[in-house]
């Protein structure tokens, strides 16, 4: 469904160099620090920027060759851009009706009501959470095959984040062939939603794994400095030295649990993986 092959985009002081393959019916997460290249990647997929080099194919076409009909198959929610804030939900409905033949007005109105979005208030008077919900509902308003969501939960409190994630889950339950590419710097959002995760740093993919593998096989191995010296490091991806011990990230936690009884082996969350890959020393 989406294929990026050595996609490169250069800016002053930043270079994106990405290869990705996202098949149909997958929920793919992009995770990385602010400025890692997540939004640039999504903008390239949407054809908003022209790559410096490399290949990009979305729904079988180059994004810059998209017709209006092709774009109807994609629903987008960008973190820093949307409908003008002077508009009300009523205005947004009228505009969406003009753009999409498949716009399901009744369904959209119902979802807005469920999320308690006022119809007559300008978006500029909405809370951050309400704006985020509206952006996501707009992206889903025309039964798109592919959803591209850029930081849909950024800046939201826990309840608003859960609401947004539930909206996305419901959309996926309605049709299993739908695909989603979602970027976030909040790992817990992606853990419960994505089939696979790409970790981006400095414009490069530093890790790509199925979420089940990440959470099932990856782990933290905590050992003393002496034990660390004797440790077989073939499955160690990153390490972090503490005051009296060393914490290691492994892609085979079972191996260390079985062979090093003195070592403390724990499950790793995506945050741990990020910290140890980006912040640790190999």
């Amino acid at each position: 469904m989406v294929r990026l092959n050595n996609l490169q985009k250069e800016y002053k002081g930043f270079k994106l160099d990405i290869t990705m393959d996202i098949p149909e019916g997958r929920v793919t997460g992009l995770i990385g620090r602010n400025g890692a290249g997540k939004t640039t990647t999504l903008k390239a997929i949407l054809g908003l920027i022209e790559p410096t080099s490399g290949e990009i194919e979305v729904l079988g076409k180059k994004p810059r060759e998209f017709t209006a009909e092709d774009k109807k198959q994609i629903g987008t929610a960008l973190s820093s851009s949307g409908f003008n804030l002077i508009f009300t939900v009523k205005d947004v409905i009228a505009i969406l009706k003009g753009f999409y033949k498949d716009f399901n007005e009744e369904d959209f109105r119902n979802k807005c009501r469920q999320q308690e979005l006022p119809f007559d208030k300008p978006i500029k008077d909405f809370s951050t959470g309400m704006r985020a919900k509206l952006r996501v509902l707009v992206a889903m308003s025309h039964s798109a095959k592919l959803l591209i969501l850029d930081e849909p939960t950024a800046g939201l409190d826990v309840i608003a984040r859960n609401d947004v994630l539930n909206i996305i889950r419901t959309y996926l339950e309605e049709d299993s062939s739908r695909s989603v590419i979602i970027s976030s710097h909040i790992s817990t959002d992606l853990e419960g939603l994505c089939d696979d995760i790409y970790m981006i740093n400095g414009g490069k993919i530093i890790l790509h794994e199925d979420t089940d593998t990440l959470l099932g096989k990856y782990g933290l191995v905590k050992v003393s400095r002496e034990e660390y010296e004797a440790l077989d490091k073939k499955y160690i991806i990153g390490t972090k030295e503490e005051s009296f011990s060393v914490t290691c990230l492994t892609s085979e936690k079972q191996f260390y649990a079985e062979n090093y009884p003195k070592a403390v082996v724990e499950n790793a969350h995506i945050d741990d993986i990020i910290v140890l890959i980006l912040g640790g020393e190999k």
Partner: peptide, 17 residues
């Protein structure tokens, strides 16, 4: 008005060339 709040980025994702 379209220019405000990076509105162009979102507008260009809508079904228009």
């Amino acid at each position: 008005f379209d220019y405000q709040d990076e509105g162009y980025s979102f507008l260009m994702t809508l079904p228009i060339r």
